[in-house]
């Protein structure tokens, strides 16, 4: 049997030039029972590489780790209410924005109409404030008296000022 290919592979193996597949091939090759003596000496190396792959942890390891990991978070995580409602988050956000904008628009609109009502100078739109004419008369006369009082006081002040200037 010609071992040239294997020898070439081995050369490349020592030089770290082989691929993962070629290294697998070498390990498989060295599993066969009869090898020429110059290759037999390398059997332990590739046999070791194959057997070391099978080294495992004990059976009780899983239980030990799982007891330390929060089991609920392993399986229930997908079923939380928040996770299920996730597709609706955007829709809810859009509704909230429209609602807020609507509220703001309504508020400004109401403010505008209130201001308009306060600045209305059309006498035809005026309404009576008092039902009893006597009370209305008294209110008007007291308001007029206050105005005339004010005017008189300011007139007196003015007279004083002119006499002072004349002096």
């Amino acid at each position: 049997m010609d071992y040239k290919y294997i020898e070439q592979l081995l050369e490349r193996y020592w030089e770290a030039q082989t691929t993962v597949e070629e290294e697998c091939l070498l390990r498989d090759f060295f599993k066969q029972e009869h090898l020429p003596s110059h290759l037999e000496r390398l059997r332990p190396l590739f046999h070791y590489e194959s057997t070391a792959q099978e080294m495992c942890l004990g059976d009780d390891f899983d239980a030990k780790v799982l007891s330390q990991i929060d089991e609920r978070s392993v399986t229930v995580r997908y079923n939380t209410i928040g996770y299920r409602l996730r597709p609706f988050y955007k829709a809810a956000a859009a509704v909230a924005i429209i609602f807020t904008l609507g509220m703001a628009a309504q508020h400004t609109f109401e403010q505008n109409s209130q201001a308009e009502a306060e600045q209305n100078y059309n006498y035809a739109n005026y309404k009576d404030t008092y039902t009893d004419p006597q009370v209305a008369y008294e209110q008007v006369s007291s308001a007029l008296e206050t105005i005339s009082g004010g005017l008189r006081a300011s007139g007196m002040g003015l007279q004083n000022d002119t006499t002072l200037i004349k002096k």
């Binding site: 070391a52 495992c56 942890l57 899983d62 780790v65 990991i69 995580r77 997908y78």
Partner: peptide, 21 residues
């Protein structure tokens, strides 16, 4: 999304061999 039993636990022997080495 990572699942512990499906994605992490099966690595145990590979991790063990590395840690042991």
């Amino acid at each position: 999304m990572i699942n512990f039993k499906a994605d992490v636990l099966p690595l145990k022997n590979r991790l063990y061999r590395l840690a042991l080495r």
